[in-house]
Design a binder for these strands. Structure first.
Length: 274
DNA sequence: GTGCTTGTTGGCCA
DNA sequence: GTGGCCAACAAGCA
């Protein structure tokens, strides 16, 4: 489920509850596929009595830093969630990792188990974290970089290209559709066929959608919305893409859906032409 | 039972 | 070697 801004929402939720807290105990599901590649026992050992220090979100990943050089990376996959429950809560069926602090329990749950928890021990952040592509909202995400990437992926539909994390970190299915809808570009257009004015619009809308999503979904400053979608405006494609008989919120004309780039894609034929 | 699902990866093929 | 496509992963929901 979670893309760019939703990942930041979940990070913030854990971070607010964990601020200044020390972990009393760790409960985890040793058999869960979530822990691919890292040892659940090592996580328990390193985190028990460790103090939460800081955290960051990047692309679709999060990294939580604890005292003693312990780092926990989280990728939510399709159905992962981070929640905060009352102290001492008992793990439910799909709760794979629970960090108990004196005030709260921090829970990672994921029914489909496409997510993962990665553990790292050392003075600096792990290599997999530092090699994530530069954020869309950073100065490195230039129009030239985007144009060069579209050229390299010239024969793939633009929808599929937007989903490539190596260049559009954090963009997932709904954000890709939202960006293309705002840019008035048909998702089936081949990346190499875009005119330079279209590339410019696409680049600009990548930034807009990321910025707006971050503000409305994760909230500004210390404010955290009560739930993920609480403040998403009805004027976004977001609310209409799955509705039966859904209408383009701008033109009030019918939306279309089809599988493009292996994913269900929604667009507005009135605005987005082949 | 059927057919979906906001993600990623590895294998196959041109 | 590069790039594009697809199935697989797994569980819940309508």
């Amino acid at each position: 489920m979670p893309e760019f801004a939703e990942v930041e929402f979940f990070r913030k939720r854990w971070a607010q509850a964990a601020a200044g807290q020390r972990i009393k105990s760790v409960e985890l599901h040793p058999a869960a596929k979530i822990f691919r590649g890292t040892s659940p026992a090592a996580i328990r050992r390193a985190l028990t009595s460790a103090k939460y220090l800081s955290s960051e979100a990047q692309a679709k990943q999060m990294l939580f830093r604890f005292s003693g050089g312990a780092w926990v990376g989280v990728h939510l996959g399709m159905s992962g969630e981070l929640t905060v429950r009352p102290a001492g809560c008992t793990p439910a069926k799909h709760d794979h990792l629970v960090l108990h602090t004196p005030k709260h329990s921090l829970v990672f749950s994921d029914p489909r188990m496409f997510g993962r928890v990665q553990f790292h021990h050392g003075p600096a952040a792990p290599a997999w974290w530092t090699k994530i592509a530069p954020p869309i909202l950073s100065p490195e995400f230039t129009i030239e970089v985007v144009a060069a990437f579209l050229k390299r992926r010239a024969r793939a539909p633009i929808k599929a290209v937007l989903l490539m994390q190596e260049r559009f970190p954090g963009v997932g299915n709904w954000m890709a559709d939202e960006i293309l809808w705002r840019a008035a570009i048909h998702p089936r257009r081949l990346a190499g066929s875009l005119k330079s004015a279209e590339v410019k619009t696409l680049w600009r809308e990548c930034g807009h959608v990321c910025r707006l999503a971050l503000d409305t979904i994760a909230g500004r400053g210390n404010y955290l919305p009560p739930d993920l979608n609480a403040h998403i405006p009805r004027t976004w494609l977001f609310w209409h893409r799955w509705e039966d008989g859904g209408l383009d919120p701008r033109t009030k004309t019918p939306l279309s859906r089809a599988e493009i780039g292996g994913r269900t894609t929604c667009w507005s034929p009135a605005r987005q032409k082949l």
